Simulated assay, not measured.
Amino acid sequence: MPRFAFQQVDVFCSVPLKGNPVAVVLGADGLTDDQMAAFANWTNLSETTFILRPTDPAADYRLRIFTPARELPFAGHPTLGSCHAWLAAGGVPKGAEVMQECAVGLVPIRRGQGGLAFAAPPLVRSGPVAPDLLDRIRTGLGLPTEAITNAHWVDNGPGWVAVKLRSRADVLAAVPDYAALGRLTLGLVGPWDPAKDGTDAQFELRAFVCAEGYEDPVTGSLNASVAQWLIGTGQAPEAYVARQGTALGRAGRIDLRRQDGAIWVGGATVTCIEGSVLL
């Protein structure tokens, strides 16, 4: 049975066990689709990734991303966690940036003092949310009508629809009814009030994968697409900090900024488990 190098990396937090974990299998070219899907189902993490040789000559490696139920074309915290694992295993990029190949194309990743940051990929769907869908979302979250101040499709692969609420308190008070919300991939965002919440961040987020019935602790793809929406429409400054995972006892911290014509999504990464797996 072949042996593969393995790391489990906590993302968007410098303290182990307070971010969002991703399982990373390195040198996974010998695995079949079924083996990848079975291992991702077994880890039961929100995402498990497999690092392979690139097919694009501009890329440093190719990444495939699986939830316990399906393959994703892109996801944020697996991108940073997998890059962390690749670098820790001795990966050397061809240029100043690490270039990841995945189903949405090439994703540049930068290294800095605060950790790693990826350039947000283009949205595959944007635009306003239909009133009937917005009403279903409000009902499914148990929110009063006045709690929702804006909403927008912000899909960069996983299917995100973002709903902006009045406050951080409203975001944390939401209680999802997954059956009522159906197959939505739903993100909530609300501003921090400096007088009540402090100045450590400017926005609070939560992410619900309703078809699979869970809340994701800290979500890079959602933060990327929300930043594209908020910064692009003047609802947020050119650079801000978001927090996520509070409702789950995590302490995710995401740095968002518009720079060099792109939205960069960054955070700390730390290895929690290292070894090998037999597959």
Rank of each mutant, 00 (worst) to 15 (best):
G198E: 02
A103T: 00
R206V: 09
D29I: 01
R136W: 00
D10Y: 06
G275F: 10
H84E: 06
R250L: 07
A88S: 14
R111Q: 15
G115S: 09
P68L: 08
N44A: 15
G252H: 06
F12K: 09
T185N: 11
R136C: 01
V25N: 03
V189Y: 05
P217Q: 00
G142M: 03
D193I: 02
A151T: 05
R111D: 01
A103L: 11
G267Q: 06
A28D: 06
G127I: 12
Q35K: 04
R62L: 12
G90H: 11
F203H: 09
L184F: 07
Q202G: 11
V124A: 12
F12A: 07
A236S: 03
G114I: 03
N20G: 04
A28E: 07
D255T: 14
R110Y: 07
D177P: 10
L181C: 13
G252M: 09
V226I: 14
R3D: 08
L143A: 11
D177T: 09
Q244K: 04
G142Y: 04
D170H: 14
Q244W: 01
E212I: 00
G90Y: 11
D260A: 15
V218G: 08
S167L: 14
P122F: 11
I137A: 02
A179Y: 00
R70W: 05
D10A: 00
V107W: 04
A236C: 04
L17S: 02
V270W: 03
D155C: 14
R168N: 15
L17M: 07
